[in-house]
Design a binder for these strands. Structure first.
Lengths: 221, 221
DNA sequence: ATGTATTTGTGAACATAGAAACAAAGTTCA
DNA sequence: TGAACTTTGTTTCTATGTTCACAAATACAT
């Protein structure tokens, strides 16, 4: 296991892909250098936070100058991609799953959805956005054979746990869970939950209970 | 603006919808009482954290007994729903947007997607999962007329900012942004970003750099 | 060359979140 | 009733994350 970046704060790690994407944008628009202030404007993260984030990797910038876009880009490419490609499978080719398959991941990074699984006979043995769809029955076998390490779970919540159990058996390392179910997995497996209903509800809760700037100050438009 | 829950930590606020959903599950399975330990098992949140979260709202439980499911449920319904319904519009009826329209939000809570917008003539003037699709040209007018307060943004990133500007003009209060774009909005508007590519990339980063329990300790099964 | 402008990298202060641990209160059962 | 058990609510501690503020280093203009 690579130890060089072991103690980088999780909050920082979550921002890295974001920085990377905006650096790509800057690069393709021909920009040679960028300051933490400019980057801050683009990604909406405090400039001090950006400098702090970058500093975990050493001194990447130059005082009085800023950061060299190409250098940063190369550096983060190495850091994020970590040489080898991670194989991802998508489980459940419904609307949400299809959205993922059409999303062009590999364009900006080395992440690539290798295979998809579903039970629908109309989808099995077709290709959606360049990705072959297998039958769910073959999940265990194919995941092992292909050495899939990450699964995106976009299945009905009723089957989320049983399918997760099979993924665990098939030696998966991480799951991106879009179902509302809270999955039981051994502690060696990492799960990120993205719960669409919760996201919407909590946004609404914030709107109602946490007045934003202009509402707190006396003037109300 | 309701001030009673003003200083509840954001982390707590984000967990409320989750608690609410699991309480609904418990209720429909006939359970009368529940302890923080049981709830912890179900939602995968430390029981002390759950008790702490609940305590912000006062003493909702009984020592030696736990929490009354019905009472909690009623309490959270009031807290989350805040009486009046929040009107939500979905902008962009692609795969991701369609996933939202078919997702049965109103089943578990009062959140309801009222209208959708798209530019595709095949979709305009149809209904998808019970929600009418309008043409994007009518966005400004309809949003104002209907008093829409929240928008779910599932459009191509190229048009994200211009559409956001129109939403701001139309007096929207909050945006759930699924595009990779970081939107410019006045500070009075709250935006939650959900960036699918970033989620996937950061999961992979964590897998590679943050060994989980069983990998750190010597035994590996 | 010299002086002024920038802009980084980081020490220190502050803010937020999570978890352990336990007294106090209530429950349960004989 | 009273003793043993349960479980909350909160105090305290620790960890994590963010921001300020500024010295040090470099760039740039004249």
């Amino acid at each position: 296991m690579t130890n060089d970046a072991m103690k980088i704060p999780q909050a920082t790690a979550k921002r890295l892909p974001l920085y990377y994407r905006f650096l790509l944008n800057l690069h393709s628009s021909g920009k040679q250098r960028v300051s933490s202030a400019e980057l801050s404007e683009a990604v909406k993260v405090d400039s001090a936070t950006i400098r702090r984030d970058f500093s975990y990797f050493g001194a990447l910038g130059k005082k009085g100058y800023g950061y060299n876009v190409n250098y940063l880009l190369t550096f983060f490419r190495k850091t994020l991609d970590q040489d080898e490609l991670t194989k991802v499978a998508l489980i459940g080719v419904g609307n949400l799953g299809t959205a993922f398959l059409n999303y062009n991941f590999s364009k900006n990074n080395n992440t690539k959805i290798e295979i998809a699984f579903d039970v629908d006979p109309n989808k099995v043995n077709t290709k959606i956005g360049d990705v072959a769809v297998y039958h769910m029955d073959d999940l265990d076998k194919v995941v092992v054979e292909e050495g899939i390490q990450v699964a995106i779970l976009t299945v009905p919540s009723a089957v989320a746990q049983p399918i997760t159990d099979r993924l665990v058996q098939a030696n998966i390392k991480g799951i991106l869970n879009f179902t509302p179910a809270r999955l039981n997995v051994p502690p060696s497996i990492r799960i990120h939950h993205i719960d669409l209903a919760v996201e919407l509800q909590s946004l609404i809760y914030f709107l109602k209970h946490y007045p934003t700037d202009t509402e707190t100050t006396e003037s109300v438009e």
